[in-house]
Design a protein around this nucleic acid. Structure first.
Length: 154
DNA sequence: GCCAACGTTGGC
DNA sequence: GCCAACGTTGGC
C-alpha cells in the first residue's frame, strides 16, 4: 500500500464536497499534467490512501483522508466538449487522460497547515514542500505517519 | 533538440 | 493582485 496527496481548490471541490457526494465518492477528473497523470495511471492502486489537500485558498492545508476505490478510468471530462477539461486529442479508443475514483475516509482535526509543515524538519523532503505545483504526488510512509501523529480522524 | 515566449499554479 | 516557479508550445 502506498500513500499519496491529492490537491483540490476548496472553492471548486473541497473535502466537505467529497463527504457529501453520493457514496462519499468522486472521480478525480480534470488532471491535465503529464506527471500527475502518470502517477494516476501507473502508480496508484485500489486501497491506497491519500491526503486531501486544500490549495489556492486562505489556509492551504491537509484537511482529510480518502481511499482509492477504482483505477484506470478514462477521464470522461476529456471527451466532453462542454467541459473546461475537454481535450480533442483524447478519444475513447485511445484515451489520453486516465484517472481514479476516491472515497472519503475521514476529516482530520486539527487540519495540518502548510505553514506548519514548512517548519517541520521531519517533512523537509516532502514533495509538497519541494515540487509544490504537482497536483498528485507521493507521500512516504514515514511522512504519512509523522503527519497522522499530529492529528485525529474525526 | 533548443530555447524564448507564453500560460498556469498557487502561496503570499 | 502579484509574481516566482515551472510546464507547454512552437519556430528554428
Amino acid at each position: 500500500m502506498n500513500y499519496w496527496l491529492l490537491k483540490s481548490e476548496p472553492s471548486a471541490f473541497g473535502y466537505e464536497d467529497l463527504e457529501r457526494a453520493p457514496d462519499r465518492r468522486t472521480l478525480w477528473d480534470g488532471v491535465r499534467n503529464y506527471q500527475a497523470r502518470n502517477i494516476l495511471r501507473d502508480d496508484i492502486t485500489v486501497g491506497d490512501l491519500a491526503f486531501f489537500y486544500h490549495s489556492a485558498c486562505k489556509e492551504p492545508a491537509i484537511v482529510g483522508i480518502c481511499r482509492v476505490t477504482r483505477t484506470g478510468i478514462a477521464d470522461p471530462s476529456a471527451f466532453d466538449p462542454a467541459s473546461d477539461y475537454y481535450d480533442p486529442a483524447s478519444d475513447g479508443e485511445n484515451p489520453k487522460w486516465i484517472t481514479i475514483e476516491v472515497e472519503a475516509v475521514s476529516a482530520l482535526r486539527p487540519i495540518i497547515k502548510l505553514k506548519d509543515m514548512r517548519q517541520d524538519s521531519a517533512l523537509k523532503d516532502m514533495v509538497l514542500l519541494n515540487r509544490s505545483r504537482l497536483s498528485v504526488q507521493p507521500v512516504s510512509e514515514t511522512e504519512w505517519h509523522h503527519i497522522m501523529a499530529q492529528t485525529k480522524a474525526v
